[in-house]
Amino acid sequence: MQNKSEFGGDFAKFINGLAGTVAGMSREAGESARERTREWIAGLDFVSREEFEAVKEMAAKAREEADSLAARVAALEAALSARAAGGGE
């Protein structure tokens, strides 16, 4: 028969081992949940901030170019109208 101090030491070792096992399981569960969340988000059609900013910048440049072209077309139309009104050389 074990004495009480040996039993207490064995019980403490058991509890420490159990605590370590539970901590490891908790850590693994957290990592697994994070990985599943990353995979789920990756499956959605989200874009990164960098991709969003790049597209936003391209759209701004395209808008500026469209405005510039619209101004050129208006100037050409005005020149044609003036030419037509002046006798059309």
Results as ranks from 00 to 15, higher is better:
Met1Asn: 09
Arg36Asp: 15
Leu69Arg: 10
Asp10Thr: 02
Met1Val: 08
Phe46Glu: 02
Asp45Tyr: 12
Val73Met: 04
Glu31Tyr: 06
Gly88Phe: 12
Ala78Gly: 09
Glu57Lys: 09
Ala75Glu: 15
Lys61Cys: 11
Arg34Lys: 12
Ala33Asn: 06
Ser48Ile: 05
Lys56Arg: 07
Glu64Trp: 15
Arg63Cys: 14
Ile15Thr: 13
Phe52Gln: 00
Ser26Gln: 08
Ser81Cys: 03
Phe46Thr: 06
Ala85Lys: 13
Asn16Cys: 03
Ala78Thr: 10
Ala60Pro: 05
Phe14Met: 14
Val55His: 09
Ala78Ser: 05
Glu28Cys: 07
Ala84Tyr: 07
Ala74Phe: 07
Ala60Trp: 02
Ala33Glu: 05
Arg83Gly: 11
Ala78Ile: 09
Arg72Cys: 00
Leu69Asn: 15
Asn16Phe: 09
Ser32Asp: 04
Asp67Tyr: 08
Ser68Gln: 12
Leu76Thr: 06
Ile41Ser: 02
Ala84Phe: 07
Met25Phe: 03
Gly20Asn: 07
Gly24Ile: 03
Gly24Gln: 09
Ser48Tyr: 03
Val73Asp: 02
Ala75Cys: 10
Val22Gly: 06
Asp45Cys: 02
Lys56Gln: 14
Gly87Leu: 01
Gly88Asn: 14
Ala62Phe: 08
Thr21Gly: 08
Ser81Asp: 14
Ser32Phe: 07
Asp45Ile: 06
Glu51Ile: 02
Lys56Phe: 13
Lys13Gln: 04
Arg27Glu: 15
Ser26Ala: 10
Ile41Asp: 05
Ser32Pro: 13
Ala19Gln: 12
Ser32Ile: 03
Ala85His: 10
Ser81Ala: 12
Asn16Gly: 13
Ala29His: 03
Glu28Asn: 12
Phe7Pro: 06
Ala19Glu: 14
Met1Pro: 15
Ser68Leu: 08
Gly9Trp: 02
Glu50Trp: 01
Arg36Lys: 08
Lys13Tyr: 02
Gly20Leu: 08
Glu51Gly: 02
Glu51Cys: 04
Gly24Ser: 09
Ala74Gly: 03
Gly9Asn: 07
Ala74Gln: 08
Glu89Tyr: 06
Gly24Arg: 02
Ala71Gln: 06
Phe46Cys: 01
Arg27Lys: 08
Leu18Asn: 07
Phe14Asn: 14
Arg34Thr: 12
Asp45Thr: 15
Gln2Trp: 03
Ala70Gln: 09
Arg83Trp: 07
Lys56Thr: 14
Val47Ala: 04
Ala23Glu: 12
Ser26Asp: 12
Leu44Met: 10
Gly20Met: 05
Val22Asn: 13
Ser32Asn: 11
Leu69Val: 14
Glu39Ser: 09
Leu18Gln: 06
Ala71Thr: 09
